[in-house]
């Protein structure tokens, strides 16, 4: 099977055919961007120091090592819980023009709206697989907002076939993890009732 590869800058039409559950890979630039960077842009109205129009962000706080020649080496970089950025993401997509958001777990209804209105997708990189991800980073080209410390710095990574990325929110309003959660909640009802009948230890 040939790999489906997205390349930055990403155009709206690149995303039109993507559906939740599809597996893709990314080549180009991937910028780490998490809690405080979102807060600075949306609440504190500060301009992001990296232009990510048509680009991709990664909800991630990596381990980075400074090498003897002064360059940064990506040691370990896996996704962080995307839901923490839900509060800001719709506005973030609107203001930055970002096209691909990579993270872990699902995001909520506002991000889904943002992805539909401004054409973007959210994708899951398998959580905890941080060395696998680091080996797909060719180079850290820049590091911005280093005052935020190692996890929150905006690390500008050049990546090659970065993935697997599982589309969890597409441009059509579908949300994979929310759909799954609805299934889990349905499935759990009879299971919970069955257990309850067997744990009446207080008599």
């Amino acid at each position: 099977m040939t790999r489906k590869i997205l390349t930055t800058p990403i155009k709206d039409e690149d995303l039109a055919g993507l559906n939740i559950g599809d597996v893709i890979y990314l080549t180009g630039h991937l910028v780490t961007c998490r809690d405080v960077a979102h807060r600075r842009l949306i609440e504190l109205k500060r301009e992001l120091p990296v232009d990510i129009r048509g680009g991709a962000i990664f909800h991630a706080g990596p381990i980075v090592r400074k090498k003897a020649d002064g360059k940064f080496e990506m040691v370990s970089i896996g996704p962080t819980t995307s839901m923490r950025m839900e509060k800001f993401e719709k506005q973030f997509i609107k203001e930055t023009g970002v096209k691909l958001i990579v993270g872990k777990g699902g995001m909520g209804p506002e991000t889904v709206e943002g992805c539909m209105e401004y054409k973007a997708v959210h994708a899951i990189f398998p959580g905890g697989c941080a060395v696998l991800a680091a080996t797909q980073v060719e180079e850290i080209e820049r590091a911005e907002w280093q005052d935020l410390g190692m996890p929150e710095t905006l690390w500008v990574n050049r990546v090659k076939e970065f993935g697997p990325l599982i589309i969890s929110i597409d441009t059509k309003g579908n949300n994979l993890i929310e759909q799954n959660k609805a299934v889990f909640n349905e499935k759990k009802k009879p299971v919970v009732e069955k257990i309850k009948s067997q744990v009446r230890f207080i008599k």
Binding site: I63, S76, G78, G128, A130, V131, T135
Partner: peptide
């Protein structure tokens, strides 16, 4: 694959230590 790579490259297997 990740656990193998972490072992071989001697790196923290998840970035969040």
């Amino acid at each position: 694959e990740n656990q193998d790579a972490a072992d071989k490259l001697d790196r923290p297997s998840c970035q969040d230590t």
